Amino acid sequence: MRAKDAVGRYGENVAAHHLVQAGWDVVDRNWRGASGEVDIVALEGDELVVVEVKTRRGTGFGYPAEAVTAAKLARLRRLAAQWLDAHDLHPRGVRIDVIAVVLPRQGSAQVEHLRGVVR
């Protein structure tokens, strides 16, 4: 596994743990649809949340959430619809969240959860 892939996988694990600690139900991870991949699909109560996780080792190249473009959000909306088509689940609502994870050289991962991201 490449170092970049390992960092991304670690960030997804941190994000999933963050959601579980908040009382959410993580129902799917790394789900592949025709439009790409969803990092995490979770339920917050009866609302389905498609979560994009962005992880960086620092902020020298910008903050992780800055990498989520309008095109990426459009792709995530398509993937949310594809995920719902493939599963027998009827949530009250659907939204897209971004979890930004920064891994400093020392200390714990820094997690920022951006809810209901739209552009």
Rank of each mutant, 00 (worst) to 15 (best):
V51K: 01
R75L: 12
W83T: 01
V53Y: 10
L48H: 01
D25S: 13
L79Y: 09
T59C: 10
A22H: 07
V53K: 03
Q82V: 07
L73D: 08
S35P: 00
I96M: 02
L19C: 04
R92K: 14
V49M: 00
R9T: 09
V20A: 02
V53P: 03
A65H: 12
E52P: 00
R92I: 05
G60L: 13
H17N: 13
R95N: 02
G58H: 13
R56S: 15
T59A: 06
L19Y: 07
E52I: 00
I96T: 07
S35G: 06
L79H: 08
Y63M: 11
L76R: 06
T59K: 10
D25K: 11
I40R: 03
H90N: 09
L19Q: 01
A34C: 04
Q82C: 09
V98T: 08
I96K: 05
V68F: 12
V38C: 05
G36M: 05
L84T: 07
R29M: 14
N30E: 14
E44S: 02
G11P: 03
W24T: 02
R29Y: 06
T69M: 11
A22F: 03
D39I: 07
A65P: 00
G58S: 15
A81D: 14
L48T: 02
R57H: 06
A34E: 15
D46G: 06
D46H: 07
G33Q: 09
L84G: 05
N13A: 15
G11I: 04
V41R: 00
G36P: 05
L48P: 01
A67D: 14
L89I: 15
G33S: 11
V41Y: 02
A100N: 04
L43C: 08
T55W: 09
D28R: 08
H18Y: 15
S35A: 15
G36S: 08
V14N: 03
A71L: 13
H17Y: 10
V26G: 00
R78Y: 07
R75T: 15
W31R: 09
P91T: 06
V14T: 04
G11Y: 11
A86I: 05
E37T: 08
E66A: 14
R75G: 11
W83F: 15
W31C: 11
R32I: 13
I40D: 00
I96S: 04
Y63D: 12
G11M: 11
A80D: 03
